[in-house]
Design a protein around this nucleic acid. Structure first.
Lengths: 193, 193
DNA sequence: CATTTTGTATACCGAACGGTATATTAATCT
DNA sequence: AGATTAATATACCGTTCGGTATACAAAATG
């Protein structure tokens, strides 16, 4: 790993553990075994570091979501695929996933929030699109695609959040396909399944 | 309002807007038109201020939830009541509600997170209890009460989150009973209703 | 080989951080 | 009235904040 990558990794760990605002630039470079000018050389600013981190890590997930949402298939299939992708993203780096969520829920004025927001807006819009493609087939959706999209993403996330509260370290193995199917099922058909 | 209450109100507004860590004690007292020793006289520390704020605002909501969760009735009725209470809590002070969520999603090491966590644990456990009381009647729940509880709270919250993203200011009126019923319905019976 | 570009470090900036020692005023109690 | 307590302010503490001016070494480029 080169110094740029080291800085991003250290920053991610610290942002996750202490929160973006609470982490000092000094702290990041100390963990990386480097000095401040090096960080400023690569990223220009603290928020620049975060932005680079988001760009390199979130974009791949987002493109997978886009593809799944655009692929014309059964809604259940689509939702399952979206669940699968999201779980994989979570498992790839739990810290990063939870950091994203923390940033999403941080204050509006906060520049860290403003940095993640566009990514979540696009994520959300992709999922809305998936539901909209189904609107024709599901006669009773009557403009509730937005509610469904945010509800679905929320359900998936709640599941991962529970998973993580139970076992923050990656002790347990991968999340099984049946589990994803169970969550998708619950979302689609409710709790009496 | 006495100075203690003024300080809490100002702190809440700032914590909501900028995040707990990003707000300085100086900033709070300036907005309140007071000085630091006054704040430290009442709360002892910055985190003490937050703790007092949580205690005075969250406890009431929590006791309502407890009561609703313990009241023996139809599960649908119970969920509706919980939705109602949560919406009321949200509408009573949207800033405070969103601040709570932001704190819940902040980093584990963060003392602000540690301050809110117990409240959410109790909230969660109350709802688990409500589902557990129904376990006998719902034969197919087989130990999924925890998943349902967090799923339900998540669904309600996602709905409020959408509501707030759409209209952060309290421009629109109260959330209607049918809307709550619709969300509870979606949770219970899925999206094909 | 000379020059430019890339990458890294030392040492510093003013500002803001959370918190406090001390003093003073206003209200309460004896 | 005198003593005590509650409530507020002035002025300060050492530390850390994000960021930078400058210098220097290594590597790429002509």
């Amino acid at each position: 790993m080169n110094n740029k990558a080291i800085l991003m990794e250290c920053a991610k760990e610290l942002f996750y553990a202490k929160g973006y605002d609470a982490v000092g630039v000094q702290e990041i470079v100390e963990r990386a075994g480097l000095t401040k000018p090096t960080l400023y050389y690569y990223f220009g600013s603290k928020i620049g570091l975060l932005r680079t981190l988001l760009e390199t890590r979130f974009e791949r997930y987002l493109s997978q979501v886009r593809e799944a949402a655009e692929t014309r298939s059964d809604i259940r299939e689509t939702l399952y695929r979206l669940g699968e992708i999201s779980c994989a993203f979570y498992e790839e780096d739990r810290q990063f996933y939870m950091l994203m969520m923390a940033l999403l829920y941080s204050a509006r004025e906060n520049e860290a929030y403003q940095a993640v927001r566009p990514y979540f807006v696009e994520l959300y819009e992709s999922v809305v699109q998936a539901f909209e493609r189904e609107a024709g087939r599901l006669g009773n959706m009557r403009g509730r695609q937005r509610q469904f999209a945010i509800g679905f993403l929320g359900t998936i996330h709640q599941y991962l959040f529970l998973q993580w509260e139970t076992d923050p370290e990656e002790a347990s193995g991968r999340i099984g396909g049946e589990q994803i199917a169970s969550v998708v099922n619950q979302f689609m058909y409710g709790i009496f399944t």
